[in-house]
Design a protein around this nucleic acid. Structure first.
Length: 865
RNA sequence: GCCGGUGUGGUGAAAUGGCAGACACAACGGACUUAAAAUCCGUUGGGGAGAAAUCCCCGUGCGGGUUCGAGUCCCGCCACCGGUACCA
């Protein structure tokens, strides 16, 4: 600001002017079916950004990367004749506002409103074509009323395994519906963070510390609301197939859900009653099981422990329960465990093997118990070595070795082998390759009634409650120890007003301080937990379609119109959001949770497609100028406001896109912004020039002139390239092509007005302010209408073909000459010309021509040796 | 360890199996200017021959392969980035 640099073109006047115009005229408002101005003849296009959390720090250059990409697409699709839904909103519940409230006493709603105002102003300054009439805010009672409503839908349903879908709880005929609800209460060991005074979800704990703040986290059992996402594990995996998502994200989700096929095997407890069920992915190694391990929390541990081992077992369990996740995994380099004194009987050979407990077996996965096969599992191997337990090889790498020996190999194997091979020392399985051995043993176990083939998932149920103030209250009350969902007519449940937002520190949520609020009635108390931040973002894309609807979370007709695309052979609708752009950091949490909610709503008949987001694209991270991740501490953060002050919003937008492919990680460069800004200034000067007084006036070179051949070709090539590149989100190369156009037309005089108009159309989605201004200048007589309302230009392929083409001529794959030939030249003619070339002659001298490859219009390759 | 991604000039990058480095940044040279900025024109992967026009060799992380032809396809490595990690 100190050096008042002369602006390359007057963007500081142009940009506010057009932003005001767009807002005043509601240019980017998308009408719903039934609204005035709705045109049923237009196809719809729903392009969505991941909405931001409006932090106090304001926008940084990472946010607008994806937003610019979608904005270009939205503007392009509008010009292509689509009715485009391109909304924006705020994911505004969350910890920072609450912590600020704790520090200052400022109500989170106040901070949130301020931050939203700031973000919104910043986004408007970039010139995004959002339909602000559809703005949503997750903290708005008119919004979270429906978040609570959806929770009640989930609460009031169950997953029917027979139909494979959610159904109203009334269709459940069992004794206790509370056991099967999709939202349920469980006493579970949770990640308790004393510092934050709250529990955290597994995914909010990084390396045993809280993701926010980095405070230590310990395990502690508490009563929590859970959502039964595991019921949907299979569908969440299977239905990824039809989605147009990056393979990497699909892989991340599959990985997270962690489907694994195997078997459950029942071991009876020797000399006792009771059976221990274990899960294994290698049932073929059952004959190699030399001991069992239960998780310390396993319910059978108490019953089977012998008197002699009681003290040791209790001590171990006590210690394990106190260990944090960090201590149980990362720090636990050495395996630990204790013998229970009990023995189990292997159902296939009657062998008695010891039962241990160890914290390397997790209570939450599989059955919480394993059969240990140390010869073929690294962990079991390590454990067996440490506690001198027997190790028996039952899989051989090669078939020959396996079939050879009849006698039992007494010696322990020298190392652990976890691969597949052939069964040995396994009775009836001997000689079978692993896959067949698995199938065979499962058949036998099932016949004996002591096991079955089964599938388990890593995915856990979703811990859905938080001990916080700034979140959606649950629409639930407690009466005589039982929960009850409130009626829909009681929504929204507003949070109470509080003076003091601090956590109680006991694990009791802050809402418990509002005694009057908590007392719902004579004998009912309100639930005092709140929902996690993910709740609001699970369905915001639905609300955008009908943001003002007061009687339904989204109107049926609007929902059908904006999401329904393809309908498959079974009459099943597919579609949803046509394009969703956001960061990879949401690959497994937000995107999985949203899919889950959507499927529940779909099963219950509230939405018409089984998946919310048909196509997903991840934008890459923008690094600082030093190639490092942007962060305050490194001091390499780029603020969009500064960039816009200096170069304008159009340059900012174009640079964000010109940096490189959207999906790629790339460093910011201020000189790069300058380059793009120069390009826009050249566009400006194609149309405008400075007069003696230093004012910008229409350039005298602009005229209604005919285009020459070369100009025609550049024009049509540019239309083609820009159109195709926008469709594939290759914005960087689209801009390159427009630079080529400008480089070709800058020296021209006269400059054909028609060509310049087309350039404005092509460039408009990228640089909407500049092009709108110049469009006006290119229509001195007026009457053409606004550029944003123009149709997208078409290209004529005939203008792209040349009469003569230049063909590279290679000899043995190396470029040796170039030929200029008529387009219609036959391969034989081209071959003759190529062989006649003196340069070619030189290189084939003394050799025999074996072959001549002619790729028409492309190249000639003479093969000689 | 496992899963995914990326490796091309000084830099960001471009290339349906067909002229590697488009477009831009930076650098250098020139024009304009009293001077600078801005603008415009030109050179710019490395090495070599030539007075020059030109020409030759090498070159897309490394090693193999397929092909008339490979940055692109296949096999085997290496490095970096992201995710995940006692999930039986």
């Amino acid at each position: 600001m100190s050096t008042e640099r002369r602006k390359p073109y007057p963007f500081d006047q142009i940009e506010p002017r057009w932003q005001a115009y767009w807002e005043r005229e509601s240019v980017f408002h998308a009408p719903n079916p039934g609204d005035p101005g709705f045109d049923p003849g237009r196809p719809k296009y729903y392009v969505l950004d991941m909405f931001p959390y409006p932090s106090g720090a304001g926008l940084h250059v990472g946010h607008p990367e994806g937003y610019t990409a979608t904005d270009i697409l939205a503007r392009y699709k509008r010009m292509k004749g689509f009715n485009v839904l391109h909304p924006m909103g705020w994911d505004a519940f969350g910890l920072p506002a609450e912590q600020y409230a704790i520090k200052t006493g400022q109500h989170p709603a106040v901070t949130t409103a301020q931050n939203v105002g700031r973000f919104k102003a910043q986004l408007k300054r970039i010139g995004f074509a959002y339909d602000w009439e559809r703005e949503v805010n997750t903290t708005d009672p008119g919004y979270f009323r429906w978040t609570q409503w959806i929770f009640l839908q989930i609460y009031n349903s169950w997953f029917n395994p027979a139909t494979g879908r959610a159904e109203p709880i009334a269709t459940y005929k069992g004794p206790d519906p509370d056991q099967v609800r999709l939202a349920f209460v469980a006493e579970v060991p949770v990640n308790w963070c004393p510092e934050l005074g709250t529990v955290l979800a597994n995914e909010e704990v990084v390396d045993g510390k809280s993701e926010v703040g980095g405070f230590p986290v310990v395990r502690r059992p508490m009563r929590q609301w859970m959502l039964r996402i595991t019921a949907y594990a299979e569908r969440l995996i299977r239905e990824l197939d039809g989605l147009d998502w990056p393979d990497s994200i699909k892989a991340l989700q599959r990985n997270w859900i962690g489907r694994s096929e195997g078997a459950e095997v029942e071991f009876s407890v020797a000399g006792g009653n009771g059976r221990i069920r274990v899960f294994t992915t290698r049932p073929d190694t059952l004959y190699g099981a030399t001991y069992l391990v239960l998780a310390p929390e396993h319910p059978l541990v108490d019953g089977i422990t012998t008197a002699e081992q009681r003290v040791a077992v209790d001590a171990y369990r006590e210690a394990a329960s106190r260990k944090s996740d960090l201590e149980r995994t990362e720090l636990a380099k050495e395996k630990t465990g204790v013998f229970t004194g009990a023995f189990a009987v292997n159902p296939v050979n009657g062998e008695k093997i010891p039962v241990w407990i160890a914290d390397y077996v997790l209570s939450g996965y599989g059955t919480g118990a394993i059969m240990a096969v140390p010869a073929h599992d690294e962990r079991d191997w390590e454990f067996a070595r440490k506690f001198a337990l027997p190790i028996r090889a039952v899989v051989s790498e090669s078939a020959r070795l396996g079939l050879g020996g009849g006698g039992v190999c007494a010696a322990e194997p020298a190392e652990c082998f976890v691969g597949e091979g052939y069964a040995v020392h396994s009775g009836p399985l001997d000689g079978l390759p692993t896959a067949e051995a698995k199938a065979e043993i499962i058949r036998r176990l099932e016949a004996l009634g002591v096991g079955r083939g089964t599938v388990t998932y890593k995915l856990r149920d979703w811990l859905f409650s938080r001990q916080r103030y700034w979140g959606e209250p649950f629409p639930v009350v407690w009466e005589e120890g039982r929960h009850r969902g409130l009626g829909v007519e009681e929504l929204p449940v507003l949070p109470p007003s509080l003076e003091d937002f601090r956590p109680t520190g006991t694990g009791e949520p802050p809402l418990a301080k509002a005694v009057d609020w908590v007392r719902y009635s004579e004998n009912a108390l309100r639930e005092t937990n709140t929902m996690p931040q993910w709740a609001g973002s699970c369905w915001y894309y639905l609300r955008y379609m009908d943001a003002q609807n007061a009687s339904r979370f989204v109107g049926c007709e609007a929902e059908r119109y904006w999401t329904t695309g393809r309908v498959d052979g079974q009459g099943q609708a597919h579609g949803g959001v046509d394009l969703y752009v956001g960061g990879t950091e949401h690959a497994v949490l937000h995107l999985l949770y949203a899919r889950f909610w959507h499927k529940v709503l779909f099963d219950l008949g509230h939405v018409s497609t089984p998946e919310p987001f048909q196509k997903l694209v991840n934008q890459g991270i923008i690094l600082g100028q030093d190639g490092q991740k942007m962060s305050k501490s490194r001091g390499n953060v780029v603020n969009p406001d500064d960039v816009i002050d200096q170069y304008g919003a159009d340059a900012f937008r174009c640079y964000e896109m010109f940096m490189g492919p959207l999906e790629q990680m790339k460093p910011w460069s201020m000189t790069g912004v300058e380059g793009v800004s120069r390009f826009l200034a050249r566009v400006w000067r194609l149309v405008m020039e400075e007069n003696q007084a230093g004012e910008w006036v229409r350039s005298g070179a602009v005229a209604d002139a005919e285009l020459d051949r070369a100009q025609t070709k550049v024009l049509h090539a540019t239309v083609k390239k820009v159109t195709e590149d926008i469709e594939t989100l290759s914005f960087n190369t689209a801009i390159s092509q427009m630079m080529i156009f400008v480089n070709a037309f800058i020296p021209a005089s006269p400059r054909p007005r028609a060509a310049l108009r087309v350039l404005m159309q092509l460039l408009n989605p990228f640089a909407p302010h500049l092009t709108e201004e110049l469009w006006e200048q290119l229509h001195p007589e007026g009457g053409a209408g606004r550029l944003a309302e123009q149709p997208w230009p078409a290209w004529d392929p005939a203008c792209l073909v040349e009469d003569e083409v230049e063909l590279p001529v290679q000899v043995n794959g190396k470029l040796r000459d170039k030929l200029t030939v008529k387009r219609e030249a036959t391969p034989a003619e081209v071959e003759a010309l190529a062989l006649a070339s003196p340069r070619v002659q030189e290189h084939i001298a003394g050799k025999t021509v074996r072959k001549v490859i002619v790729v028409p219009g492309k190249l000639v390759n003479v093969v000689a040796s």
